[in-house]
Nucleic acid binder design. Structure first.
Lengths: 229, 229
DNA sequence: CGTATCGTTGAAATATATCAATCGCAGTGG
DNA sequence: CCACTGCGATTGATATATTTCAACGATACG
């Protein structure tokens, strides 16, 4: 993938942003990729990068959906995050990727050389802050997820997951699940059966309605929120 | 705490570091606090900061041990990390702390104004990179912990925990546990009883020997490693 | 030396996993 | 157009790891 990428990743004009420097106060967000990066398409289940590979590129989802994950030797998988359009991923401070990344469905990804961003950061503190801010955002998500995995029940996990998706698209009447039950299970630290049963249960309680297995309608936002903890 | 800190946190000379700028390649670590910060002492179980409080200070453990954590409304607690001497914590990109922090035992903490670091970062890309690097390190730890909480058995969790502590002090013949069984349980997503039983079991299997409940001798590093997954 | 706190152990309960069967839908080919 | 196939999702029955509840033991502290 890296080799293939190297040739297709044409880096366009670098536009150093000017504006108020932002180390002092939170200012957000600011389009790191503006005018940068090459667009690539990944098929369903195609690997974008693997754990331990050189982290020479940074990615942003243009369309589709991506999962990042780790696997143990015996195949147990923990999904770290689901990335949706607009999300940046694969940005590492160190040399290598800490997780693998795969497209969940056919996805368009904008790819940018990390060094291009680093060079910008060298000169513009605002870019430096933006890079840091992305990592900090990721950390925040990971830390909330620790609470979910360490201390929440199966039902609370699923409800929290749906709540998070719903919060992301507040105006959408339905939550669209791009990922399989297995993906959700590996994200929530459960089995597919438990995820499935929990959906059925939430539906029986009138909290949600399933329209096919990939569309979830939230019947009562309040009831769903109560289920999150 | 913040008010109390404000008066005692005398910021000494700021020494902007000069040297090779490091956005391009991994270079590590570099003493952010050199010449900065005030020393404070926190008693056992004293709060250093609370979740949601303004993140105006950054902390480094000089001696002792610190836990960071989140709590749910009903009291369930998830410990995010244990910080040991040399560790930096409380550094946030956003305005507020995402977790609370408490001293586990009487601890000396070096406290530094975040703005002092931000001002440095404004001028020195190296400082900017160092701040980012700290956050990225934290993210890395969080992501490994996700795998532990989501996919590992009780025994694997405890073994992984011991392994990590042991790796941190490779030459020490004994692992010193500064934290209670409850702290470990809340870190590992288990109950105190399960943690206790697992210690007993690992001891029965000849992997470790307990010398009192706070000292662990690793009898077979290989056996311990095998238990980690 | 008594008391409180923390840790350990045991027995029982339970949430979730595991194993296994069926269902349902999408794609395929007759 | 409709059976056929395959894969993911659901449901059921059972197993099990971990929790919960409870008692006891050890250790530190005043």
């Amino acid at each position: 993938m890296s080799a293939q990428l190297a040739q297709s990743a044409v880096v366009h004009t670098l536009r150093p942003m000017v504006g108020p420097t932002s180390w002092s106060r939170e200012s957000e967000p600011f389009d790191l990729f503006q005018g940068l990066g090459a667009r690539m398409t990944f098929d369903r289940d195609a690997e974008i990068y693997g754990e331990g590979e050189a982290a020479d590129f940074v990615y942003r989802v243009a369309s589709g959906c991506v999962r990042t994950y780790k696997v143990l030797a015996d195949g147990r998988r923990q999904i770290g995050d689901f990335l949706l359009p607009g999300d940046v991923f694969g940005l590492e401070a160190g040399a290598d990727h800490l997780l693998s990344a795969e497209a969940i469905c056919r996805s368009e990804i904008v790819v940018c050389r990390r060094n291009a961003l680093f060079n910008l950061a060298q000169r513009s503190p605002e870019v430096g802050h933006a890079l840091w801010s992305l990592t900090a955002r990721e950390l925040e998500r990971a830390q909330s997820h620790l609470m979910l995995l360490g201390r929440k029940s199966a039902c609370e996990r699923v409800a929290t997951f749906l709540q998070t998706l719903s919060d992301r698209f507040p105006e959408d009447p339905e939550i669209c699940l791009h990922m399989s039950r297995q993906d959700m299970a590996d994200y929530l630290g459960l089995t597919i059966e438990t995820v499935s049963r929990t959906f059925t249960q939430l539906q029986a309680e009138g909290v949600i309605a399933l329209h096919g297995c990939r569309k979830v309608e939230v019947l009562s936002r309040q009831a769903l929120r109560r289920k999150t903890y």
